[in-house]
Amino acid sequence: MILVENMTKIYRNGENEVAALKDVNLHIRAGEFVAIMGPSGSGKSTLMNILGCLDKPTSGEYYLDGKPISQLDSRQLAYIRNKKIGFVFQNFNLLPRMSSLRNVEIPMIYAGIPPRERRIKAMEALKSVGLEDRWHHKPNELSGGQRQRVAIARALINSPKIILADEPTGNLDSKSGAEIMGIFTELHRNGATIVLVTHEDEIARYAQRIVFFRDGRKVDEKSSELL
């Protein structure tokens, strides 16, 4: 499903060149639940951005469903972000002026789904994360855990095969974090491929496999039972 070959990402900052990823190889099969761990600056977020088709590698190739991503134009990349990938961010990234319902509707707007159908599906999605009575609330009227659940409902709305979560529990208390991880576990059981970045051992334990990064290199890989 996801195949990364010899991937390098170099950021140019004036005269300085910083290599965020160095010669990374990674294979994630369909239906896997993988956690990526490492200290800050180890390149895990850069990898997530590339996996999410938000950024492009300097060299190497990223194959999604067997297709090289470097061959795609911005329109096709937008399509992949819309249909194949669901993003969950550490800081939720909800649009502050919109209700939960409107936020969940956004990916469907770009998928060209008509308003009536959108509304119904968005309500169902909010229900599935237990927020059906909060549909008209704006993000600042919700708790952190509730916001992240809205964000998950939004990420899932177009039924993507891959869920990319960048420290989804980083801004949450442990109780809310556990609730969110419960949702991810449930999704995984239903067949979703999940890639999750974290630096907390307890969170990484929910995954099947853990990949360790340091200074832009993949340094280790093990099953979560060994943690």
């Binding site: 937008a78 399509y79 972000r81 909800l94 956004i106 770009y110």
Partner: peptide, 15 residues
């Protein structure tokens, strides 16, 4: 930031 979020959720440049 809104533009970034919209793009991450599948908005094309034309959108």
């Amino acid at each position: 930031r809104e533009i970034g979020i919209r793009k991450a959720l599948g908005a094309r440049e034309t959108d």
